[in-house]
Design a protein around this nucleic acid. Structure first.
Lengths: 326, 326
DNA sequence: ACCCCTCATGTTAGCGCAAACATAAGCGGA
DNA sequence: TCCGCTTATGTTTGCGCTAACATGAGGGGT
């Protein structure tokens, strides 16, 4: 920076200012400085800047898995909203609370200016670290009642409840429910709770044999369907509430020559191109995953500009997409 | 850190050492320091550490898109290999060389210790910035002949060539080729070149009408198939070399009642669970995307430990998965 | 003329660590 | 006894910036 300053015949301070707020220096001076930067190939050192100003522009994001295309949507939303001014640090928790805690610790050591979490469950230590850090935080995986700070997303409980009521309304009696493993996964837990609540609300009883946890994957979905049919031959509908499970189940039903939806209905969640393309196209829940990421980042940046506590909860809802599979 | 040092009755320097290399301090002292850290809730400031030591542990990764599950595999591989000790900064180029340059500039300002790129084409400025920075760099998207520094992956040219020769060997004469847009995308360009090379090698001529560029997406794949059939009714095989195009084309063929592979063969690339699950299952190319990310990160870290120039090129190959669609 | 205000730029100090060197204590061998 | 070596810890300095304050030049208003 000294070199640039010398070349532009100003002090280092003026260069620093020109970089941070071009309007704060004289136009002529600014042009000289820009020319000098170009000539020297100077790349500002934000590490030093961050230390001096005691803040960074880096935002942290923790998702359960980087592989999953669901989270990929949210990541893209966050990244797009942040733009070039806010570098993005990403880590995955491996679907474990301890993994999240480790990532939070690492991020706080990097003095991130804000954080986006997918989980809404956290270890005690995670909570206290985030509190002590005093940085804005957005939880996105589930619209929780008592967020750490801010939250944006949809209610997994409501969505699962709505889908279940839809099935009950169409006359299905023995509805199977498949979710990802509930352990350390509040989204899956909420969905199962919603599924059960819908039964209660409609005066039905859901047999425990109809509740299943499954690893993610197309194959797992097929396996889950097979398991349910074997356990409860009278099962007439299955709600597979995670990942690509529903598509896997539908493909399995097709292989077995089961008539969907007359012999058995299959519905899913997390609509994607594929669910529409299979035959019959799947009735499913659609979640605004990209928007969730985008809004999360927007809320973070708004808070950074203006450290008030106004917007702290944003429900982006869900859609029930009716197609031919139920 | 001063607080911790006081509580443990040592100097700040000893705390710093205990944090960076626990073996370098006396066991008793270390335990006192650890207790003090626990008691105070001290979180080290790596910004300050980085400034003082003039290096960071942060690794940068730039992919064309964060949405795409192909890149997601690589991202996960990088993240897993880096572990907790190396935070990961991610940006997407939006499939544009200018986007990559902007991301590189931002990363260099953050003084990343190494970088993983997917693209192997770069702007002149990108190249010079990376050279000047003098940090290790791994290119992963295509096994290029003259990498900036290191490269790991597979040859898109060879893979496409092999698939095309496979089709020719099975007697197909009028083979269509669909790729993602070639602009700023060396992978797509290489694949098309490989496709053409296979024809030349076998003494066949590929009609220009059989070459198509398509946006990504399931629907686009169907559309591409329709376009090719309309243009060249005699087309007897189509090689869709990107994203989920092949699956889309297959679903479209099914909708049209075309017999695959007897009326028309369809082959793809980037094997995934879905390509195996559709009917008929797709013959396709499989790329070790996760391993590529993993190895890229490993190479980076190895170079950081030992700044020699030994391993600089690693071919992880590809597999041709024969199934029933050709 | 004087003051005060704005605008543009400069000066000083220090952010929280780690590199480099300094110190001190213990120990074995000649 | 003294030296040289190792091990454990302390002191000094500065990384490259920015916050906060200082300076100085110009420009009305009274």
């Amino acid at each position: 920076m000294e070199d640039v300053a010398a070349l532009a015949a100003v002090s280092a301070m003026t260069v620093s200012r020109a970089l941070r707020d071009p309007t704060s220096v004289n136009t002529e001076t600014r042009l000289r400085i820009e020319a000098a930067i170009d000539a020297t190939g100077y790349v500002p050192n934000r590490i030093a800047g961050s230390l001096a100003s005691r803040r960074t522009n880096v935002v942290g994001l923790i998702v359960p898995s980087l592989r999953n295309s669901l989270f990929a949507e949210t990541i893209q939303g966050v990244s797009d909203a942040l733009g070039a001014h806010h570098p993005l640090m990403i880590a995955d928790s491996g679907y474990a609370l301890a993994g999240e805690e480790a990532a939070i610790r690492a991020f706080l050591a990097q003095r991130i200016c804000g954080i986006v979490l997918h989980n809404t469950q956290h270890t005690t230590r995670s909570r206290s670290m985030l509190e002590d850090a005093g940085i804005p935080c957005v939880e996105t995986g589930n619209l929780t009642e008592k967020p750490l700070d801010m939250t944006v997303g949809f209610s997994n409980y409501d969505a699962a409840c709505a889908m279940t009521e839809y099935l009950i309304g169409r006359g299905y009696k023995n509805i199977g429910f498949v979710s990802l493993p509930i352990h350390d996964n509040d989204r899956a837990a909420e969905r199962r709770a919603g599924f059960l609540a819908a039964h209660q609300r409609r005066g039905l009883i859901s047999a425990p044999e109809l509740l299943l946890e499954s690893p993610p994957g197309l194959r797992s979905g097929g396996l889950a369907l097979a398991t349910l049919i074997e356990r409860v031959p009278a099962v007439d509908a299955v709600f597979l509430s995670g990942d690509v499970l529903a598509t896997g189940a539908l493909l399995e039903a097709n292989r077995r020559g089961l008539d969907v939806p007359n012999k058995i209905a299959i519905v899913g969640s997390d609509d994607n191109e594929l669910q529409e393309a299979v035959s019959p196209p799947l009735t499913t829940l659609r979640f605004p995953r990209y928007q969730i990421g985008h809004q999360a980042a927007e809320m973070l940046m708004k808070r950074l500009r203006n450290p008030s506590r106004d917007v702290s909860r944003l429900d982006l809802g869900y859609e029930l997409i009716e197609r031919a599979s139920a």
